[in-house]
Simulated assay, not measured.
Amino acid sequence: MSERDGNTVILRKARSGRAEHQARGMSPSKALRLALAQTADALYDMPVAVAAVEQVEISQTGLDRELGGGGLLILLDGPDGARGALRMDLGLLGALIEVQTTGRVSGRATADRAVTRTDAAISAPLIDAMLARFEAQLREETPAHWAQEFRYGVMMEDVRGMQLALTAPAFHVLRLMVETGDVAQPGALTLILPAPPETPEADDPKQEAVLARTLEACAMGVPVRLEAVLGRIKMPLGEVCRLKPGDTLPVALDKPMRIWLEASEKHVVAMAHLGQSDGLRAVRLLLPQSERAALPTEVAEEAPSRIAPKRVAPDVEDAALSEPGAAPPEPSPSDMKAFADQLSE
C-alpha cells in the first residue's frame, strides 16, 4: 500500500513539474496569444481575451479550408521572398473598427458584408505591431525560428488569389478564438506562415557505399531484351498486304552470317556471327578492336575479332555501330550462296 502511494506522489510531482516547465516556455501559440492581447491593449486600450488557440501544420491543399469563411485576407511579406497570410473574421474586424471610431465595443451583431481597403488600412497597425511582438517573444526562446520578419503586405480580394500567392509546400497555422471588449464580442484570427524545409542529414560515407552497391545490384539485375537482326527491308504498305505464302524477300547482308545485336530504339549493342552450337542456332559476339586491345595477349588471340577483311572499306560493322540506321552495302552473289549453304546445314 505504501509503495503504491509513493508511486502516486512521484507521478503527481512529475506532472506538476512538467506543467510548470511548459508554462514558463514560450510556444508559438502562447506567443501569438500574448502578442495580440498586448498589442490591442497598447494601441487601442481594447481588452482581448483569447478563448482558444490551436496550432497545426498543413500542406497547400489545406489552404482553402483555412482561408474560406469570409473576412479580411492579408498577404504577409517575409524574408527572402517568403509569404504568409492572415485572416481576420468580421467579428474581430468590427470590434477593431468600433474601438477606433467610438472608443468602445458595442457588442452588436456584425452584418455580413464585403471588406474594403479602408478595413485593411485600419487593421494594418494592429497586424504589424502584433507580428513584431510575436517575433520578439519567440526569439527569447528560439533565436532562429520560422516566424521572423513577417509584416503586413497587401489586402487580397479573394481566396483564389491568396492561394496563388502562397507557394510554400507546407505551412504553420495558428487559429485564435477571441473575445473583445467588456461585452466579450466573439471573433477569430488565423495566422498562416510557411514552414521551413527540413534540413537534410549529413551524408554518411558508409551509407553511400551501401546505397551504391544496392543500386549497382539492381541495375545489373534488370532484364534487357536484345534482338538479332539479319537485315531490314523497306516496303510500301500495299506490297506488304499483298504478300502470300511462298513469296521471297531479298535480305541485304554486308557479310554472310553477320548480324547486329540491337537493344530498344534500334540501338546497336554489338556485332555477332550466326552459327550453331550442339545442333542449335547460336550467335557468337565479335569484340570491337578497342576492347580486343585491352585484353591479355593469350585471351586476345582466342577472342573472335570484328576487324573487317581488307577488301571491305570502310569497316561496315563500325559504320553500323556509329549509325544504327545506316543501310549496309549489297552482298555479292558468292556471299549470298555461302550464307544459304550454311543455313541449310
Score class of each variant (00 low, 15 high):
5 D>P: 02
6 G>F: 09
7 N>P: 06
7 N>C: 05
8 T>M: 07
10 I>G: 03
12 R>A: 13
16 S>R: 13
17 G>F: 04
19 A>Q: 14
22 Q>G: 01
26 M>S: 06
36 L>F: 04
37 A>P: 00
38 Q>G: 06
40 A>C: 14
43 L>N: 02
46 M>W: 02
48 V>G: 00
49 A>T: 08
53 V>G: 11
55 Q>I: 07
57 E>N: 09
61 T>L: 08
63 L>Y: 11
64 D>S: 10
65 R>Y: 11
71 G>M: 01
75 L>Q: 09
77 D>C: 03
79 P>Q: 03
80 D>H: 14
84 G>P: 00
85 A>Q: 03
87 R>C: 03
88 M>H: 03
89 D>W: 06
89 D>L: 09
94 G>K: 15
94 G>S: 11
95 A>I: 10
100 Q>V: 02
106 S>Q: 06
111 A>K: 10
113 R>I: 07
114 A>H: 05
122 I>P: 00
127 I>W: 02
128 D>H: 03
129 A>E: 15
129 A>T: 09
130 M>S: 12
130 M>H: 11
133 R>D: 15
135 E>W: 05
136 A>R: 15
136 A>L: 13
141 E>D: 12
142 T>V: 07
147 A>Y: 06
150 F>K: 04
153 G>K: 01
156 M>E: 11
157 E>C: 01
158 D>S: 13
160 R>P: 03
162 M>W: 08
172 H>F: 13
172 H>C: 03
175 R>S: 15
176 L>V: 11
181 G>I: 05
181 G>E: 05
182 D>W: 07
184 A>I: 03
186 P>T: 10
194 P>Q: 12
196 P>K: 07
196 P>E: 12
199 T>C: 02
203 D>R: 07
207 Q>K: 08
209 A>F: 05
211 L>Y: 04
211 L>G: 08
212 A>W: 10
214 T>A: 13
214 T>Q: 14
215 L>I: 12
215 L>D: 11
218 C>M: 13
218 C>Q: 08
220 M>V: 08
225 R>I: 01
229 V>R: 14
231 G>F: 02
232 R>F: 02
235 M>Q: 15
239 E>I: 08
239 E>F: 04
242 R>Q: 09
248 T>S: 05
253 L>Q: 04
259 I>Q: 01
264 S>I: 11
269 V>N: 15
269 V>C: 14
270 A>S: 09
272 A>S: 09
273 H>Q: 09
275 G>E: 12
276 Q>T: 11
278 D>W: 01
284 R>Y: 09
291 E>Q: 15
292 R>C: 00
299 V>N: 02
302 E>H: 15
304 P>L: 07
309 P>G: 00
310 K>D: 03
313 A>N: 11
314 P>Y: 00
316 V>M: 00
323 E>M: 11
327 A>N: 09
328 P>S: 02
330 E>L: 08
330 E>R: 07
330 E>V: 08
336 M>R: 09
336 M>S: 04
337 K>W: 01
338 A>G: 02
342 Q>M: 10
343 L>F: 12
344 S>G: 10
344 S>M: 12
344 S>N: 10
345 E>R: 13
